[in-house]
Design a binder for these strands. Structure first.
Lengths: 139, 139
DNA sequence: CCTTGACTTGAACCGCGCTTCAAGTCACAG
DNA sequence: CTGTGACTTGAAGCGCGGTTCAAGTCAAGG
């Protein structure tokens, strides 16, 4: 079984993350090492799934601290579920915003208008977006 | 006409941004003040549209520097258009990623599975997402 | 004239997510 | 036993997007 443990360098390579990032995640509680081989951390292969999860969550705008909370939450945690559902809702809004933004850019990239930035359609999509975005001061 | 100029405090209030942020944007070239009333910056009302645009772009993940480039680009700029189209494509990917994330979270929030994090469906959606996310090292 | 109070400036600081660095420690080869 | 070289640590540094701060300046009011 010790055979199946991965060296930190290997995990780094396979996950595409820097070793420093792995150590960073470890001391933030996002992942755990299985033990040491001398000084070297060794990881169970499942850590790769973890890392994929983390990368994805990061990409979706979750902070490290949030991810840690998710991962450390007590198992049968109803708060966790609520939190997840809440996040799903938030993502819904993000998606809508990005979609509008994408449409605005698409239009802008083909619209002839003299300052491009003044194109009414273009401005319009931002206006709408802004109205929905404003209430959220954070970020 | 001077009547229609807005004081920085007014712009701050209407846009929901801190005055410090307005000054920050100004010295990054994102907005321009119309002049001064004593020491006080005054802005043309159109700056509010600008700010809405900026807020939206920020929300869509553009950096301040990127936005500045967009806004300062020479008008009939074909590179600008190409850049925009490119960004639109990138947003498409982000949207797809967020959508998968949202679905993953939705599932997770109702799925009974003992470490929640180990739910196969849940993991699966991250796996797929990760595969598409990995090539992009930045961010 | 002097105060008040909102603005001005540049510079320092903050939180985030890491990376980089100096200094130390280990396994293994020769 | 001595390198070598990849790891270890904690601390410092970085880029981003601002905020905060000390010190200065102005217009208006008393």
């Amino acid at each position: 079984m010790a055979e199946s443990l991965l060296d930190i360098a290997e995990v780094a390579e396979r996950s595409g993350l820097a070793p420093s990032a792995l150590r960073f995640y470890e001391n933030r509680g996002l992942i755990a090492s299985a033990g040491r081989n001398g000084l070297r951390r060794t990881y169970r292969p499942e850590v790769l799934d973890r890392l994929a999860l983390i990368a994805c969550a990061r990409g979706a705008g979750f902070t490290i601290a949030e991810i840690a909370r998710f991962l450390l939450a007590t198992p049968d945690d109803t708060k966790l579920r609520a939190h997840m559902a809440e996040k799903a809702r938030a993502l819904e809004e993000d998606i809508a915003r990005l979609t509008r933004m994408r449409d605005g850019l698409r239009h802008a990239s083909t619209c002839m208008h003299e300052p491009l930035v003044e194109c009414p359609d273009f401005k319009h999509s931002f206006r709408r977006s802004a109205a929905l975005t404003e209430p959220s001061p954070g970020r």
